[in-house]
Design a binder for these strands. Structure first.
Length: 223
DNA sequence: GCGACAG
DNA sequence: ATCTTGTCGC
C-alpha cells in the first residue's frame, strides 16, 4: 500500500516536537469509525542490539485468519523518549506497511493515540501518514488518571488527562489487567473498544499485535 | 527537588 | 524493548 513520505526525519527531540505540532491538526479525532471493517492490520517492532524489525499482519476481522504479513528491517534512527516513541518505530513500520499488497481497513497500533502528552501518539501519527483509520492499544498507561474497571471482560473506565477523556482502560479478559485504548485517526472510541474486544477472544492483547509481535521477533532472529 | 515516563 | 530461572496451571 501507499504511504506518505517521512522525510525529513528528525534527529533530536526539538525537531520531533515541531513535527508533532505540525501534524497534530491533520489527525481526525471526531468522525465516526469505519462503517465496515473487513481487514485489520496489527503492527509491532522487535529490537536487538543495533537493529529492529517491524511486522505488519493483516487479519480477516471476522475469522481472525491471516490475510497477509510483511516485515521490514531498520536501524534505530531515534532514541526512545516517552512522548516521542513514534520517531523510533515509524520508519520500520512504514516500511512493513508499504510492502503490503492489500490496504487494511483499520490499523491496530502497539502504543497510544490520543492518550499522549501532546495528544499525538504513534496511532495518530501513523493514521495521518497512511490516511487510514487507526487506534492505539497500549499495555501500560502513558498519561491520564483512571479508576480500575470492573473485573469482567468488557468492563472499562475512562482515562482522563488535563480534564479531557483521552482513552479507556479496557478489560479484555476477566480478572486480567486492562489494556489502554485510544483513538488514532478516523475512528471513534466506541468502535476502537469494540474492535479491541473482537480481537481478544482468548488473550489480553489483540490477536493482531500478538501475531505481529511473534513475526517481528522471528524476523530479527532469522537475520 | 522528587516522581512519572507508550516500546 | 530486552536481559533471564523457576514455577504455577491448563
Amino acid at each position: 500500500m501507499k504511504v506518505a513520505d517521512l522525510h525529513p526525519w528528525p534527529k533530536v527531540a526539538e525537531e520531533a516536537l515541531a513535527i508533532q505540532d505540525r501534524l497534530r491538526p491533520l489527525a481526525d479525532l471526531a468522525s465516526a469509525g469505519p462503517r465496515t471493517v473487513r481487514t485489520v492490520a496489527g503492527l509491532d517492532v522487535a529490537y536487538a542490539d543495533d537493529r529492529l524489525a517491524a511486522a505488519a499482519v493483516v487479519l480477516d476481522a471476522e475469522t481472525l485468519e491471516v490475510v497477509e504479513e510483511t516485515t521490514a528491517l531498520d536501524r534505530p534512527g531515534f532514541p526512545y523518549v516517552p512522548g516521542l516513541f513514534a520517531f523510533r518505530e515509524l520508519p520500520a513500520l512504514v516500511g512493513a506497511l508499504r510492502a503490503l499488497s492489500v490496504t487494511p481497513d483499520l490499523l491496530i497500533c502497539d502504543g497510544h493515540g490520543l492518550a499522549h502528552p501532546k495528544r499525538f501518539g504513534l496511532a495518530c501519527h501513523l493514521g495521518v501518514l497512511t490516511g487510514l483509520p487507526s487506534i492505539g492499544v497500549g499495555k501500560t498507561r502513558l498519561v491520564g488518571d483512571y479508576d480500575e474497571p470492573g473485573t469482567e471482560r468488557g468492563a472499562w473506565s475512562p482515562v482522563s488527562d488535563g480534564g479531557q477523556v483521552v482513552g479507556r482502560a479496557l478489560r479484555t479478559q476477566t480478572r486480567v489487567r486492562p489494556v489502554f485504548v485510544s483513538v488514532g485517526h478516523r475512528a471513534d472510541l466506541d468502535t476502537a473498544c469494540a474492535m479491541t474486544l473482537r480481537l481478544t477472544p482468548r488473550y489480553r492483547l489483540p490477536e493482531t499485535t500478538r501475531r505481529a509481535d511473534h513475526l517481528s521477533r522471528a524476523t530479527l532472529k532469522a537475520r
